[in-house]
Amino acid sequence: MILLLRLSGIAIFLVLWEIAGRSMGAALLAPPSDVIAELGKLATEAQSRATIWQSLAPAVVGFGISCAIGMPLGAIMGRSKVADALLHPWMSLFVVTSVAAIVPILILMVGTGWWFVVTVVVLSSVWYVVLTTYQGAVRINRRLLDVGRAFGASRVQIFRAVMLPALFPYLLAGARIGLVHAIRSVVLAQLFILTGLGGLLQEAGMDISTARLLALLVVIMGLGLIASHGLGQVAHWLAPWQKTVDERT
């Protein structure tokens, strides 16, 4: 029954889109049938495939850097009052700052090469990783830490045996949000310098038909869904006993 409703939701959406597309014409809104045909064409073009793959590399590298910086930083902020007081104002400032606004100065600083995209990715995803890890670190149950201390565990042991398992769901939630933002910002960065996915989108925007544009959006959507659900699966596989945390902490 539930499956039926879900499928019918998607079906109604597609039918409405098809009707709207046919009545408005492909120049304004290509119907899904055209978009599927275009997707097939996209899949056979080696050039486009390579471009899409290459666009993923800076997202992955930037995301890795964000995790490597953000997770320890968030944990430290959550456990140390001084670090929190010192860093929190900056974190709340940076997390509300739109990366798009920083892009022009980044272009002056690092040029428009591969590392430019990586920098944009890091600058847009690292704050989410930090703040999510921070939420987890603040909420570590005091009693668990006290048990560790009562049994004379060293700081390293407490970190490994108590804090890390307690933080785990938050680390994963942070990683998920970070990855979603990483993919978003790759597209943003590439739209500024018109390479990779951004370049493809720009080119498709010039077409008479919007079919190619919509096909690219579907591809990007697929990448985003695979990324966020893939990490959810990895989390479940690594630590099946953990509940996932609400991502919007």
Partner: peptide, 12 residues
């Protein structure tokens, strides 16, 4: 739809 970065809609 949420999985699509908003900026990707710009050409559209």
């Amino acid at each position: 739809l949420y999985a699509i970065p908003p900026v990707a809609f710009i050409p559209f």
